[in-house]
Design a protein around this nucleic acid. Sequence first.
DNA 1: CGGGCACTTGATAGTAATCAAGTCCGGTGG
DNA 2: CCACCGGACTTGATTACTATCAAGTGCCCG
Lengths: 237, 237
Amino acid sequence: MTTSLCTCKACNHGICAQRVSIFSSLDEKQLIKITDLITHKEYKKGELLVMEGEAMDSLVILNGGQVKAFRTTQDGREQILHIFSEGDFFGERNLLRDHPSAYSIEALEDVHVCLIHKREFQKLIKEYPDIALKVMEELCERLDRLENTVEAMGTRPVEARVSSVLLEFADKYGKPHPKGTMIELPLSREGIAHYIGLTRETVSRKMSLLQEEGILEMVGNKRVLLLDRKALERAVE
Amino acid sequence: MTTSLCTCKACNHGICAQRVSIFSSLDEKQLIKITDLITHKEYKKGELLVMEGEAMDSLVILNGGQVKAFRTTQDGREQILHIFSEGDFFGERNLLRDHPSAYSIEALEDVHVCLIHKREFQKLIKEYPDIALKVMEELCERLDRLENTVEAMGTRPVEARVSSVLLEFADKYGKPHPKGTMIELPLSREGIAHYIGLTRETVSRKMSLLQEEGILEMVGNKRVLLLDRKALERAVE
DNA sequence: CGGGCACTTGATAGTAATCAAGTCCGGTGG
DNA sequence: CCACCGGACTTGATTACTATCAAGTGCCCG
């Protein structure tokens, strides 16, 4: 999955589509055809790719970097709904149903995206039904994750929710380390708070607690060394 | 949509599949073919259709009555994730990915379901890609609703969350009434609480408040007369 | 190396959970 | 049809927890 990355600036080797799971059922010839339909775009950290309520005319495939999908309430509170990483896509719902975007998308770091225009995407789906099945699979994953989030927000004590996010990040962004797992946090404390419906102070306090308990070690502000995964898993239940 | 209901006990007129949106793209001949694949089952109010963690071998289409999809935590707390009504289906995710069920399903009233076996469903999806698109549409709707729930649970004050559920029920189950809209509540106070992550007492108190404000009127325990929809909509924001 | 921003920590206040009685609804049986 | 019973609902008092407000500290980038 992470091998043979396309490192060229504009993906003109014709292989970047290969890395996206929704196209995994296609053969090389078909992939090259698709690559011709793709246009590219770059965003800097902090830039908005999409604004809530805006119409979308393309499927967006993340080809490097991470973004957050979030909503802002009238009184300025933010709720993060999804974090998308390399290989993920978004906009599919707006293309399928012709709705405006239900959330804003902001680059968490410098980001490179591939765009497939609405009419091409709709043609592709008709032509290769397997693509629809792959999209469906991805929608199912998101449903699973959101259901877990709802359950956590509805029934779990705050400490369990923090633990749960840390486990999610460990699985997605963790790298082996002699003392456990090193996690590159995609979000600041405030970001984590907005992901699970808390305030930055509460997240801070709970993470300090976890550190005192010897479960993890904070390494600067952007990394966490997970020492005792089992303990974290117990905290989630 | 609600016309020409199949009121026979076992749906042997061969038209019950017609009422399900996922088959709406098929013609009558195809529908009759599908009807042959369907088996039927009845459940009484309170019965479990599916247990969390159980393997599923069929797509379940609700042909009458309502059910709730929920999870129970180790310490006995319940979180309701979905409410399914006539025409809705579930189990699709387990069939597509061969996972055990992520939640239990309980009949909220006497229920009649149609079952399509896994192997038939998978054949149908291959044969009629439009069905996959319809399933996808439905998954999108559920994602939308869950995203709204997460946003509400993360950023909205409790009163707004209660108002939000009442509006949802008004749209789904409300009937015109000289003084406003009469809502048949699918859930008890406790059920509503478990749907939005609160306790029954809190739901009770907030609904009493809404009644004092003249926004609604409780009619017995199972119905609510919504008097001032606009006010409720304002409370959600 | 310095400055700004993110993070931590502490004190206080507000809100919902919990605990605890009562009341009312709704179904059942006479 | 009415009376009764049990479960669901309401209401009140108290407790627990997290948001908020406020200050200080430390990380990270230029």
